[in-house]
């Protein structure tokens, strides 16, 4: 009887194991591309064409994002009207409010996947 019970106990001790939670101390860290220290797009020049139109030249800082990134366009949200989706880097004309500190939000854009990158904000004050 004793041997029988001890045998059963031994078998269970042998085959049993408490499972440890391997994710107990695992937390997510931020992606370096989420809030980049160096922007992907820089507005190199901004120029008021008239009170409601602004023209900008941009530079894509390709050294700040992965080589494999397959963006297709630059996406610009303007204060008036819809967004501007363009492949141009120079003379991009944008609608703006007259006599107003306009906020333009720029990001890289993949048109096929409809994905936007982290944003860059550019302010331009139009004069009447």
């Amino acid at each position: 009887m004793t041997k029988y019970i001890l045998g059963m106990c031994w078998l269970f001790v042998l085959f049993s194991c408490k499972k440890e939670n391997e994710l107990n101390d695992v937390f997510l860290s931020n992606s370096p591309y989420e809030n980049p220290s160096n922007p992907y797009i820089t507005v190199v020049k901004g120029e008021q064409i008239n009170c409601n139109i602004v023209a900008i030249n941009i530079r894509i800082n390709e050294e700040n994002f992965p080589d494999t990134l397959n963006y297709t366009h630059v996406y610009i949200e303007t204060p008036i009207g819809g967004p501007v989706i363009t492949k141009k880097k120079r003379d991009i004309f944008l609608n703006a409010r007259c006599d107003f500190n306009n906020e333009f939000v720029l990001s890289l854009y993949n048109k096929d996947l409809q994905l936007n990158s982290a944003e860059v904000v550019y302010f331009f004050k139009t004069n009447p």
């Binding site: 931020n30 992606s31 989420e34 990158s117």
Partner: peptide, 9 residues
């Protein structure tokens, strides 16, 4: 931690 696109992140 390595995705580029915020929606993917």
């Amino acid at each position: 931690e390595n995705s580029f696109w915020p929606s993917d992140i």
